[in-house]
């Protein structure tokens, strides 16, 4: 579904991604882990060109992702941010319906109905007409996730979705992500939640020094790490 070929990104002289190649199949849940500054977030942001790669190619469904029809591509790749990035001047429901209506995917009535259905699903239907400021971090992030879902994306990209949350709110967000994974959603998740990676991921990828150092199913990844740097990393975080 997504094919990445020799992706490179450097900021000036600093090389962040040094040739990353990867295939992601439909229904995969890929967790990207690695020390901070290793380029995993940059890699994610290069997939939908929030960062412009300095080299290499990204293909979505066989089509190369280029600047030309990037908006159509992004509509298929939902993204969830570390800091939620809900629109503070719009109500919760407006946050969810905004893009589908503006892009003429749905009428306002259809989008409203879908928004209520999604809110029902995460148990926040009573918050539909409040503003994001009144919500807790966990609630905000769950709404950010269904805002991305409202575009009916083919794949969801998660950029450290629980890193900005208070510890007691991490669970509710991970729970929703697990549900999504079970429902067959293709997901690429940059995370520090090793428990989540072990339980939900179909593949866990360790990135360091701008390269993929290890790419394995979670069982093997955590129980028999080969790469010495990964061993060192795991000994610190587990």
């Amino acid at each position: 579904m997504i094919a990445v070929k020799d992706l490179k990104k450097s900021f000036g002289k600093l090389t962040v991604l040094d040739g990353i190649s990867l295939n992601i199949e439909k229904g995969d849940v890929i967790c990207l882990v690695g020390p901070s500054g290793c380029g995993k977030s940059t890699f994610l942001r290069c997939l939908n060109r929030l960062e412009e790669p300095t080299g290499g190619h990204v293909f979505l469904d066989g089509q190369e992702v280029t600047e030309k029809d990037i908006d159509a591509t992004r509509a298929k790749m939902g993204m969830v941010f570390q800091h939620f990035n809900l629109f503070p001047h719009k109500t919760v429901k407006q946050n969810i319906t905004l893009a589908p209506v503006l892009l003429k995917r749905k009428t306002q009535a259809e989008a409203d109905a879908q928004a209520m259905e999604l809110l029902e699903r995460i148990g926040l239907a009573d918050k539909a007409d409040t503003y994001p400021n009144m919500l807790s971090g966990g609630q905000k992030q769950r709404i950010a996730i269904i805002r991305a879902l409202a575009m009916d994306p083919e794949v969801l990209l998660f950029d450290e979705p629980t890193s900005a949350l208070d510890p007691e709110m991490v669970g509710e967000v991970l729970e929703l992500m697990k549900d999504l994974a079970k429902s067959g959603m293709t997901m690429v998740v940059v995370t520090h939640e090793m428990g989540f990676a072990r339980e939900v991921a179909s593949r866990v990828i360790f990135i360091d020094k701008g390269k993929i150092q290890e790419d394995k199913p979670p069982q093997e990844f955590f129980d028999h790490p080969e790469n010495p740097r990964l061993r060192e990393f795991l000994s610190k975080v587990l």
Partner: peptide, 20 residues
Amino acid sequence: GQMEAGRSLGLGYITTMRVI
């Protein structure tokens, strides 16, 4: 992040500017 959120939903630069 507001611009990024708008763009990541598939909205164009001008639309995101105008609405967000």
